[in-house]
Design a protein around this nucleic acid. Sequence first.
RNA 1: GCCCCGAUAGUUUAGUGGCUAGAAUUGAGGAUUGUGGCUCCUUAGAUGCAGGUUCAAAUCCUGCUCGGGGCACCA
Length: 500
Amino acid sequence: MDDGVLKEILKGIKGFRDYYPADFAKVNYILDIMKKVSESFGYEEYEGPSLEYAKLIEIKSGEEILEETFIVKGKDDRKLVLRPEQTPTLARMIVNEQQRYPKPIRWFSIPRIFRNETPQKGRVREFFQFNADIIGVDHPAADAEIIALTCNIIKTSGLKDGEFICVINSRELVQSYIEYLGIENYLDVIKVLDSKEKYIQDFIVEELLEKKFTASKAKEIATFVRLKKQKKEKEFPNLSNKDKEYINYYYELSPEIEKQKIIETLIKIGLDEEIAEKVYFFSKTKGTPSFFLEEISKLDLGEKASLALEKLRELAIYLEYFGVINNCEYNASIARGLDYYTGIVYEFFDRTGSVVRAIAGGGRYDQLVSSFGGEKIPATGIGMGETVLMAILEDLGRLPTYCQKVDFYVAPVNKKVIKEAADITARLRKEFRVLFNPFGWKLSNQLEDAAARKIKHMIIVGKRELEQNKVTLRNLETGEQTLLPIEGIEDELRKIVNTE
RNA sequence: GCCCCGAUAGUUUAGUGGCUAGAAUUGAGGAUUGUGGCUCCUUAGAUGCAGGUUCAAAUCCUGCUCGGGGCACCA
């Protein structure tokens, strides 16, 4: 094999990560919190296979999703996929065995998830995704509990109030209202509302082209306008004053453009002007839950949408009970891509300006389980990758510094006492994490070794001490040494480990 | 899939077409057979890949790969 090819191979696959001990410790810091907090909420851990039939994903999430999955061929030619999400697997498991478990089922899982997308900040092709679900109750308190659980994990990891936000909406509310207005193609409308930023960009480019700007210049200015809104303009120098004037001009104008373009596009897909305006104003509503509920209830909603609004009202009560309502915002424009979501949907975002992407997202999927056959089982749940949260914590410097997890380094001073040192080590390992050096190294080298590993305590085993049935305990940070009797040494060591 | 920036030992980096690519740190061995983090010695280790221009390329050009940032997408 030639060197070029070999080098490529050694680099590993694009978007996949090697976790060296210090890296894996960071990942585990977050995964441990996910696990501990979930257990503190009474959730049970489950796991599924890494591979599923492509059909399983396709049925539930649509065929286009398969374009971004890794496809594997099974022996019988059936297409298999490396799981791009955990929910279909969970739904499958529930369909098969649901009668065994008392409802509601509260389960969590931290599977490795695979997505064949372009890597960028907070996005890789293989990652750990925390999933928590409540299955078997159709009650807003279940959604509130999932949101509270997620808030708890995010806060325990190191983000503070105000550094993240949970944005909540109800698909039922949006859909019922749009249908109440007499619109049939509800999904088309959602799509338009979702792409509002794109319409603004297109409008600016179009207008600048008419003013004889080059295409690339026009696009550049449009991009700057968007970045100015995200407060990131400082990253872009080298602009003429004339360009800056245009950016400010369109920046000021963009709310107006947004309104005009969205209404225009809605009319284009068949809505009356009056209806299009109603849809636009509805979709713009957002703010604290109480503000949102008040604003929306002013509208003429119709029966179904009113019911959906009642559920959001009830949800707010439980968010309040669970102490997370200040971390939440209601917003009529968030949709979430997945088709299987039916009611309340929620999405967590960073507020520190570190990452634009969502930290976590989830919602209610009352039809998913029944669509695999069997009775209707309501469910709600969240998915949270470890990468985005980790990128934010990394930027804020809130990840703990790494050190090797060893309580004691056992150092025999010469080859003659290795057996005795090994016996002591075996005893201590029943209770402590002990690194033993059986290689017959000189003591000075062992001290250096322990220091390089940042291990705090060394137990020195030598002939002099053994003659009085003792060993030396050395604190490697202070250099302090004490002689300890081997008999009952665990009690002394326990004190030291517990005070740290 | 698109756009911008980048790539020199494990890591941080020097080197603006010209001597054998230089250093720090890390790794390995030793000075030192019971007390370290100091010092000293020895040793190992790099121009991402493939072409092109040139007497001469780490340096200039093209393509690719990988990384970073952004767009689109985002279960």
